[in-house]
């Protein structure tokens, strides 16, 4: 991958159509948007924010990776992620069990929040991305309210905490190590793969390309 920074639009080009320019979303630096070659990445010269990083077939790849993540997430929810053995008894815990552990009392809110951050928000994001990008991967018109849905998926991104959950499971494992014998279940590994697939998906995703495609195809 080739990285380069953009040159600022020169002052003489005051007649340039706003559609051919981009203002860096984080620092407002103005650039005339060149045709960035596929596979390269254009960054803002001042704050190094990635402005655009188009790739061939990225939409299809993202949709497929999101589909993969979806299946991994289902496995992660229903299979046990930790198996605990003490006094000859074994207890397997799935994420569903974690959520149901506080089905009453003052900790219902906590359980809902934890479940949302680990499972619901990542799932919503995946579904939103598939909804927005699948029609574009096929070259169709955008789905209804695709703009609102994509905005929503970007908004909830920081609240998607599957990778933090993995670290938490590892810490729990060590904390209880003295109390009982613990081993990692299949769901834990599903989550590990999920985090890698999600990271891969996010590097493929060029937000500017998606917004421009949505804009062009909406008309």
């Amino acid at each position: 991958m080739q990285d380069f920074t953009l040159n600022p639009s020169d002052r003489s080009a005051s007649g340039t159509d706003p559609e051919d320019m981009i203002a860096c979303p984080t620092c407002d630096a103005l650039y005339r948007l060149p045709d960035v070659a596929k596979g390269s990445r254009a960054r803002c010269r001042r704050c190094h924010t990635t402005l655009t990083a188009p790739r061939d077939g990225a939409m299809t790849q993202i949709v497929m990776l999101a589909g993969t993540s979806f299946i991994l997430m289902l496995a992660g929810v229903f299979f046990p992620f930790l198996e605990l053995t003490a006094a000859g008894r074994t207890q397997r815990s799935s994420i569903l069990d974690v959520a149901l552990a506080y089905s009453d009392g003052p900790f219902v809110g906590l359980a809902i929040a934890v479940g949302a951050l680990i499972v619901i928000v990542p799932l919503l994001r995946l579904l939103a991305l598939i909804y927005v990008l699948a029609p574009m991967a096929f070259g169709w018109r955008p789905a209804r309210d695709a703009i609102a849905v994509f905005r929503f998926s970007e908004r909830i991104k920081p609240w998607s905490m599957a990778e933090i959950f993995i670290v938490s499971v590892a810490i729990s494992l060590i904390k209880v190590a003295g109390l009982a014998h613990l081993s990692l279940g299949p769901a834990f590994w599903a989550f590990v793969v999920l985090v890698f697939v999600t990271a891969l998906k996010d590097t493929f995703m060029c937000r500017l390309t998606i917004w421009k495609t949505l804009e062009q195809r909406s008309h």
Partner: peptide, 19 residues
């Protein structure tokens, strides 16, 4: 020298960068 959209009397979108 860098020019910001604001210097030009333009408003850049804080989300997608559209000018």
């Amino acid at each position: 020298p860098l020019i910001t959209a604001r210097d030009r009397g333009l408003v850049g979108c804080p989300n997608c960068g559209r000018v």
